[in-house]
Simulated assay, not measured.
Amino acid sequence: MILSSDNKDTFVAITDEIVEVVKQVGENEFLINGEKHHFELTISDGPSSPISTSITFNDRIIQPTEVGTMSTWEYYDTKYVNVNAKRNFDTYTYSALGGILGTLMAAALGMTIIGGIVASLGAGMAYNYAASEKYPTNVGYSEVWIYTKGIHPLWTKKAVSLDHAVYKGKNVYLGQTVRTEYSCTGCGV
């Protein structure tokens, strides 16, 4: 659970029974219960056309249907997200890491097509990263495929993130995060 506060730079992260106060104190600097942590996040553009064939991530074959290429969804964009944390991901709680990733992604993406769902997407990515104790690393990589359906500005958006740990020089597939934002309930979209 991630709770906002009166201070826009501070949130409370609750994972199981662990409560953490997280405060952004610099562009990439966060205090977690008073301890300073540095996070770097870069986002770059992916291919301009949808991926129509299966792809392989570290010996796991991903089919296009796994990322929402259903007939009613239209491919919109792909973003590559690289994350570098101060410590290994599995030493962070899901909520604190998710809130931080959501904050950094929102700042980097602004009000883009995916802007409305980045906080939730960041939390899902953090869950996969933090659950990577088999691959102790502080470096992650996600490929985010973005789909839409409907008529602008009433379109519905879907973001599918294929999340990886960068471990011993290889991208190790951790899982996928899927988030959908419905822009207009009941308006026929």
Score class of each variant (00 low, 15 high):
residue 25 V to W: 07
residue 114 I to K: 01
residue 88 N to T: 06
residue 121 L to R: 00
residue 73 W to H: 08
residue 77 D to A: 14
residue 169 G to I: 09
residue 137 T to D: 02
residue 8 K to F: 09
residue 33 N to C: 07
residue 90 D to H: 15
residue 31 L to F: 14
residue 50 P to M: 08
residue 31 L to N: 13
residue 177 T to L: 05
residue 97 L to T: 03
residue 98 G to R: 00
residue 178 V to Y: 07
residue 7 N to Q: 12
residue 48 S to D: 13
residue 1 M to L: 10
residue 176 Q to H: 07
residue 184 C to F: 12
residue 30 F to H: 03
residue 65 T to N: 04
residue 187 C to D: 03
residue 17 E to N: 09
residue 178 V to L: 12
residue 173 Y to Q: 13
residue 176 Q to D: 07
residue 144 V to L: 04
residue 9 D to M: 09
residue 139 V to W: 00
residue 127 Y to C: 01
residue 113 I to K: 05
residue 109 L to I: 10
residue 95 S to M: 08
residue 19 V to F: 01
residue 117 I to G: 12
residue 25 V to Q: 10
residue 167 Y to C: 02
residue 33 N to K: 07
residue 155 W to Q: 02
residue 10 T to S: 09
residue 8 K to W: 06
residue 80 Y to P: 02
residue 46 G to K: 11
residue 181 E to N: 06
residue 178 V to Q: 11
residue 58 N to D: 15
residue 181 E to Y: 01
residue 82 N to W: 07
residue 27 E to L: 11
residue 171 N to Q: 11
residue 171 N to V: 06
residue 64 P to G: 06
residue 171 N to M: 10
residue 57 F to W: 04
residue 117 I to N: 09
residue 161 S to K: 02
residue 170 K to Y: 09
residue 127 Y to A: 00
residue 79 K to R: 14
residue 159 A to C: 14
residue 164 H to Q: 05
residue 111 M to F: 12
residue 189 V to Q: 10
residue 111 M to S: 15
residue 29 E to N: 14
residue 9 D to S: 13
